[in-house]
Nucleic acid binder design. Structure first.
Lengths: 222, 222
DNA sequence: CAATTGACTCGTACAACGTACGATGCGATG
DNA sequence: CATCGCATCGTACGTTGTACGAGTCAATTG
């Protein structure tokens, strides 16, 4: 019966010999745990109760450090999106590709982030990335008047690509089914039926080729 | 007091003089009502109970016509995305712009759809649009080998643009705040701080300019 | 030392949700 | 009349986010 209440379970292992790896509740620790849990169980897998349990604390304790669940999402998102711009500026086009590749890769490493970002944009770490894009474009000689439009188009492109990729999930089965349905309806969709559009699973390659299109268009005309 | 139980409220106005505008429960009617409710109260505003009440039926009756709530989303999404390709093929670039403009406009007219589409792609009406893109590109002389990449890049672009636009919502306040925060942190984000990137609210114009970049890149090189 | 304060933790409780299940009513068919 | 399918719906359960207030403990103050 002892388990019934569970009650004081765990308690804080306060005092002397508490493992040092159980600090106390902290925004950072909450963020980190949330990221783990999101990675493991996906967007819907994160519940406040689960989060609390994973950290060995009571549910309501979280609310001392965090406004509400949305704030947890924000925290996790920004945690994951940290960016360290590395190389120097020389090949503007290569630099931009690097920013966007890294961006995309990060989001795909945590697929929930791609589904989340559209709803809560503009955490600090996003701004870092935008800033970097900005400098790259300027350095590349893109006309001042074009820079903003270029940034947004790049943003749109990554955003769309990752969101799409993440939503298709790793299961190629869905796409295969769709493509099959397409083939049946060959009369309705002659082009699509023939093109195997939905079967192509070279996501990275497709991403790069599309990005090249875009950069070709952005590159200063001479 | 009569309202207390509500109970048999409404009932089916079965029999002779029922208004013809209250058919019976129907997938189509459910879809339509869901769209209205989504338009009015947003993504989270749609609840099965609310939906049922809006149609004057019991909650569980819905489940006879619909698998679950997700199915309702699918239904509503595809309802909204219906597309009638109008004009003939002549100016491939103009045609593509038309497809994408219409696409974007439709989604922005129902902002929830932009947030939904990333999760549940490839309803039939989406395919119509993709097919249309496909023919336009081919007609425009884009190399066969480039068509798929081009389609996906266009898809990514619209998707990213609409999703972003929808998430910013009509409230410019958020962006203003962010831009202000940017100005304060001018040292961290010199370019962004100066560019008023976040203040620009000519969404349509920006969309078109970015799309031009992309199409410039896609256009067959000569 | 005792009293107080404020940072922090947590159990309980509630309202809202999606939906499983089974009961009910109905028109058509035997 | 009996039977059967389609269609409707009430009730009930489990799960969720979180409001509220009571609890703990270290540091501060008298």
């Amino acid at each position: 019966m002892a388990d019934k209440a569970g009650g004081q379970r765990g308690r804080r292992p306060q005092g002397q010999d508490a493992q040092p790896n159980e600090p106390t509740l902290t925004r950072e620790r909450i963020a980190a745990t949330a990221v783990n849990m999101l990675d493991a169980k996906g967007l819907d897998g994160l519940t406040m109760r689960g989060l609390a349990e994973a950290m060995g604390s009571g549910v309501m304790s979280l609310y001392w450090h965090v406004e509400n669940k949305e704030a947890v999402f924000d925290l996790a998102l920004d945690t994951v999106l940290e960016y360290s711009a590395p190389t120097s500026l020389q090949d503007w086009r290569g630099d931009i590709v690097h920013v966007l590749d890294d961006w995309r890769a990060t989001m795909l490493r945590h697929p929930w982030s791609a589904l989340l970002l559209p709803r809560r944009v503009l955490g600090p770490n996003i701004l870092v990335r935008l800033e970097r894009l900005s400098t790259c474009l300027s350095a590349g000689g893109v006309a001042e008047a074009d820079v903003n439009a270029a940034i947004w188009s790049l943003w749109n492109y990554v955003m769309g690509a990752t969101v799409t990729r993440a939503s298709f999930g790793p299961s190629d089965a869905d796409r295969a089914v769709s493509q099959e349905r397409l083939a049946e309806l060959g009369s309705l969709y002659p082009f699509l039926g023939r093109s195997r559009l939905l079967l192509d699973d070279d996501w990275d390659g497709t991403f790069r080729r599309g990005l090249d299109f875009l950069l070709d268009g952005i590159a200063p005309k001479r």
